[in-house]
Simulated scan of single mutants.
Amino acid sequence: MIRIAVIIGSTRPGRRAEAVARWVADTSVHHPAVAAGQAAVEVVDIAAYALPLLDEPVPAAFARYANAHTRRWAETITAFDGFVFVTPEYNRSVPAALKNAIDFLYAEWHHKAAGFVGYGVHGGIRAVEQLRQVMAEVKIADVQTQVALAMFTDFTFTDPTDPTDPGTCTPSTRQEATLATMLDEIISWSQALKPLRAPSTAPEPLPA
């Protein structure tokens, strides 16, 4: 079975990322591979791991984790074959909490596949573009299809004038179709990369 983590990429109080991640998870149950038991989708909330600003004394490439919170995070990520990163866009970039969570690890990300669900005024597209560069460095194969949710068309708010209202994630059927295509790609790539994910305890050498 291919296991896919839907990673909530924001820790901000009142964040909308949680609602988006739940939409991804709830919608994914209708995907043929998930319905057939060939793939499973699970929400992973980085806020639940209480990761501080990177505090490991040794670079992640050596896999010598000194802290319990890092080892717990590493165990979680190791268990998955692919990822859906749910990210807002902060000042044309990725949330610091998400980048920090990625930087804590190295080999645990290798030879897996990832897709992106961005949201925001512009659908989070600029944050996703930056995430694609990060994926290359941790040897994650990112798929082409991505979901871009717009605040004005894919969310419903009780009070649109209240900036603290997280709203409800209500994407159109078009967005659901795009998500299904993205999951097709993630599952296929995760399966294709599986032979490369053989367990290894040897750290990769650092550049000279």
Rank of each mutant, 00 (worst) to 15 (best):
G82F: 06
L98Y: 04
I46R: 07
K139G: 10
A61W: 13
M151H: 14
V138D: 03
V44I: 15
A33F: 07
Q38P: 15
V29T: 06
A60T: 02
R71D: 10
D26C: 02
R22S: 07
G124E: 12
D55K: 11
E137I: 02
R71L: 12
G115H: 00
H122T: 04
V20S: 13
V43K: 07
L196S: 00
E56W: 00
K112L: 00
V121W: 09
D45R: 02
A114L: 12
G9F: 12
R64S: 01
T145F: 05
A198P: 00
V138N: 12
L206M: 02
M135Y: 10
R132H: 06
I8W: 13
L179S: 09
A50S: 15
L149N: 10
Y119H: 03
G120L: 11
F83V: 05
A5N: 11
Q133M: 01
V117M: 03
K99F: 08
P166V: 11
Q38I: 11
F62P: 14
A114N: 05
S188Q: 14
F155P: 02
F157W: 06
V41I: 13
P32W: 09
D103Y: 07
L98R: 06
F83E: 07
P59G: 04
V128T: 09
L149W: 07
H31K: 10
L183Y: 05
A48G: 00
Q146M: 03
G167A: 07
V86S: 05
A198Y: 02
Y49K: 13
T158Q: 12
T201A: 14
A127I: 01
A97F: 01
I8N: 15
F85R: 07
D45H: 07
N91R: 06
G118P: 07
P163D: 04
R16H: 09
V41W: 02
A107G: 14
S188E: 14
A198D: 04
P203A: 09
A39W: 12
I102H: 04
R126W: 06
V58Q: 08
P205S: 10
V43I: 14
K99N: 00
A25R: 15
K194Y: 00
A101S: 14
P52W: 07
V41L: 05
D165G: 04
W23Q: 09
G9I: 15
S172K: 06
K194G: 14
W23I: 03
T27F: 08
T178C: 15
T168F: 06
G167F: 05
G124I: 05
S190F: 05
R12G: 13
A101T: 11
K112C: 03
F157V: 03
I125V: 13
A61F: 14
P205T: 00
E108Y: 05
A19Q: 14
F62D: 13
P207C: 06
Y90M: 02
D55W: 08
F104L: 06
T27E: 04
I77Y: 02
V6R: 09
R3E: 13
Q144E: 15
A107K: 15
T153M: 00
A97E: 13
T168C: 11
M182R: 07
